[in-house]
Structures are given as C-alpha cells and as structure tokens.
C-alpha cells in the first residue's frame, strides 16, 4: 500500500471518505428515522476475488452504482436482505406497505442506494472540485459470489477498496459502503489530491 499511496495521501483519502460517508449516513438517518454510527474508512489494496471472499457469507442485498467522469469507480451499498426489508419499512412507514410487493421493495432499496451513494460521491466531488457522473443504480441479491459478477472487474484484478461499516443503532442493522477503483482511477484520484496536499504542506 505504501508504494501506491503515501501516508499523507492515505490520510487525506480517509478524511474525504469520512466526509462522504457522513453525508450518506445523514441521508440514511433521515430515511430510517434513527441514529447511524459509522466506522473509520478502511482502505485496502487487494485482489478483486479476495474482496468478494471478504463479504459476509449470507444472502445480501447490494445496490451498485458506477461513476465516471473525473473518477471511474464502482460504489456499492450492501445490507443483509433482512436488514434491507427493515430499512424500506422504516422509509415508507405509514405511507406504503411493501410487505407483499417485491417489485416495490426492490424499487425502494434501489432508491435508497441511489440517495446514499450519490450523497457520498457528491461530497467527495465537491471536496476535490471535480465532476463525477453517476449511472442509474442496479440491484443484486444473493450470496457474495453471485454479486458484482456483471461488473467491470476480473477476479484477478488488483483493486483499491474503501470499506465503511454503518450501524443503525435502534434497529441493530449493519450495512457497508464499498468503493472500488482500478489502477487508472487511483492515479486520477491521486492527481485530485495534489492541490489539497499542496495547500496544507
């Protein structure tokens, strides 16, 4: 990792993602009507296949969104399927009952992913003064091995992943936001950090 990112770059990246996840957690707090605690972002340089293996071995619900423009990345919001139902129920509350409507549940969790991932990506773009476009989110459910399989990366690709764990205090539901970048995007990200590092050096 030290060859890829200097200590200062890594520190700054963690701070940027901290700001981003703060916005995303605030959005989830509004949606789920409860306090959200978040972990310090963890940055790893690993094989894509190892990343998949590191996910919880259970049925998961994953909203995936690709970003392009000044930064190409894949971001994902991951909950257990059970947890995702609870979040949707809390989001819609008295307004809409999704208990017997799978299509509406999927639509709702996709929209929650859209809101949270955009909040995070948008705040990073603001901090770096760059423009990041996002595609429409898509939803994948199932065990980890089935997930992310249709995405850009091969199993033996080396990736930079940024993992942030969230915890909904009242409902005791855990979720994870993941950002995955290939080497080219990492270099672009490092370029974006340069002006900030220059300012603070």
């Amino acid at each position: 990792m030290s060859k890829i990112l200097s200590a200062q770059e890594k520190d700054l990246l963690i701070e940027l993602f901290n700001i981003g996840i703060g916005k995303a957690a605030a959005s989830l707090g509004i949606i789920s009507k409860q306090e959200i605690s978040v972990s310090i972002p963890e940055i790893n340089l690993i094989l894509f296949t190892d990343f998949i293996d590191s996910l919880p071995q259970q049925e998961l619900c994953c909203v995936i969104q690709r970003s392009f423009g000044s930064l190409n990345s894949i971001s994902a919001l991951i909950f257990s399927q059970e947890g995702s139902f609870e979040i949707v129920r809390r989001m819609l509350g008295k307004h809409i009952d999704v208990s017997s409507n799978t299509e509406l549940y999927q639509d709702a969790i996709r929209e929650i992913g859209n809101i949270m991932l955009n909040a995070c990506i948008g705040s990073i773009a603001k901090a770096l003064d760059i423009r990041i476009e996002t595609e429409l989110p898509n939803l994948q459910t199932g065990p980890p091995n089935n997930m992310l399989e249709d995405n850009l990366l091969q199993k033996d690709d080396m990736i930079l992943d940024v993992i942030i764990d969230m915890h909904m205090v009242e409902s005791d539901i855990a979720g994870t936001i993941v950002f995955i970048m290939g080497p080219f995007s990492l270099n672009k990200l490092k370029q974006g950090l340069k002006p900030i590092i220059k300012r603070i050096s």
Binding site: M91, L92, H95, I96, V98, E103, L104, D107, A108, R110, E111, N114, L136
Partner: peptide, 13 residues
Amino acid sequence: DDSTTSRLLIKAM
C-alpha cells in the same frame, strides 16, 4: 420520477 416508490412517497407527503 423513475422510482415508483419515490413517486408514491412524494405524492403521499
């Protein structure tokens, strides 16, 4: 809105 949930929620609110 392309999201059915969003439309329903916006209308309800």
